[in-house]
Design a protein around this nucleic acid. Structure first.
Length: 300
DNA sequence: TATCCAAGGTAAGTT
DNA sequence: AACTTACCTTGGATA
């Protein structure tokens, strides 16, 4: 086993592991104590989390926890570059906040979760996660991804235990609708299966959206079954690095109605542009994510 | 204990 | 293009 640590206290804007991986951005991280997304779970501030990454030599497990200003990790590979990528440790959070409009709601949200960063999930896992997110609670979305990994994920031996990586498109494409429904996916089962088949057969790849202009990229992703504009925005923001994307979910729609009624332009595309401008454009997705997490946890 | 309801929406069918 | 409606499942709220 390899071990190491990354100093994070000195990163501009700081870092907070728990709010980063338990704020509804990623469903591909797990708490070792099994209490991911349980609102009554003890905070502690230093819970161990793990995820699996794909490397040239097959899947590897990365386990990490934050102890004060350090991110400690254990893995079967050198986890440092993976953690920097997955948790966007290179983002200048201070500059991002400085570039966001002076707005009382945004200020309260940023203050409440200082150090929260946008994640950079692997594209396929992000795509499937957010297909599953339709009409679903955060804790259950996470539970579904855990079930998918348990049923169809490749085993990864690490530290005397067997972990399961998130399934490959090929393995998931082999699943039957019934099998997926038995995992509790409901009507999302055929969406997941058909999208996995599209990726497995090379018909399309979510990663291909990376080089496109933002709105073209969003349009491209809607070709996957079960992906509309909202899910596409989530994949763009939480996986493909489009920090200007503002997914219009129920929470942000409520926020628009209450705080920014002028931004409601009827259609998704127009309302999206309006709230993106309201949130400062380039890093509007950061603002959205802070507001989402803040309001969902009872802030107002 | 039984019933109702909403949860980070999308696809398919109408106007 | 904009507007309806159906869709699985389940934990939590309400009666």
């Amino acid at each position: 086993m390899e071990r190491g640590e990354i100093p994070v206290a000195s990163l501009p804007g700081g870092f907070d592991l728990q709010s980063t991986v338990e704020s509804g951005q990623s469903y591909l991280w797990n708490r070792e104590d099994g209490r991911m997304y349980e609102t009554d779970a003890p905070y502690g501030g230093s819970a161990w989390y793990w995820t699996a990454v794909r490397t040239g030599d097959g899947p590897a497990v990365i386990r990490t926890r934050q102890v004060e200003g350090r991110l400690e990790w254990e893995s079967n590979v050198d986890a440092t570059p993976h953690l920097r990528r997955l948790l966007r440790l290179g983002d200048d959070l201070a500059a991002i906040r400085a570039a966001t409009p002076d707005d009382p709601l945004l200020a309260r949200a940023y203050d409440a979760y200082e150090g929260m960063r946008i994640v950079r999930d692997p594209p396929f896992g992000a795509l499937i996660s957010f297909i599953c997110s339709a009409q679903m609670r955060v804790a259950r979305i996470h539970g579904m991804q855990r079930e998918l990994a348990r049923a169809f994920g490749d085993p990864v031996a690490f530290d005397g235990r067997t972990y399961r990586a998130f399934p490959t498109p090929e393995r998931l494409a082999e699943a039957t609708e019934t099998q997926l429904r038995d995992l509790g996916l409901g009507y999302r089962a055929p969406y997941v299966r058909d999208t996995a088949a599209m990726v497995a057969e090379g018909e399309a790849d979510p990663a291909d959206a990376r080089g496109m202009a933002y709105e073209s990229a969003r349009e491209y992703l809607t070709r996957f079954v079960g992906v509309g504009q909202k899910v596409a925005d989530c994949v763009l923001l939480f996986s493909l690095g489009f920090l200007q994307a503002v997914p219009l979910d129920t929470w942000i729609r409520k926020t628009i109605a209450e705080y920014y009624p002028d931004c409601d332009r009827g259609s998704y595309a127009e309302t999206s542009r309006a709230i993106r401008d309201q949130f400062g454009g380039e890093y509007a997705g950061y603002a959205q994510t802070y507001v989402f997490h803040y309001l969902r946890n009872g802030g107002e």
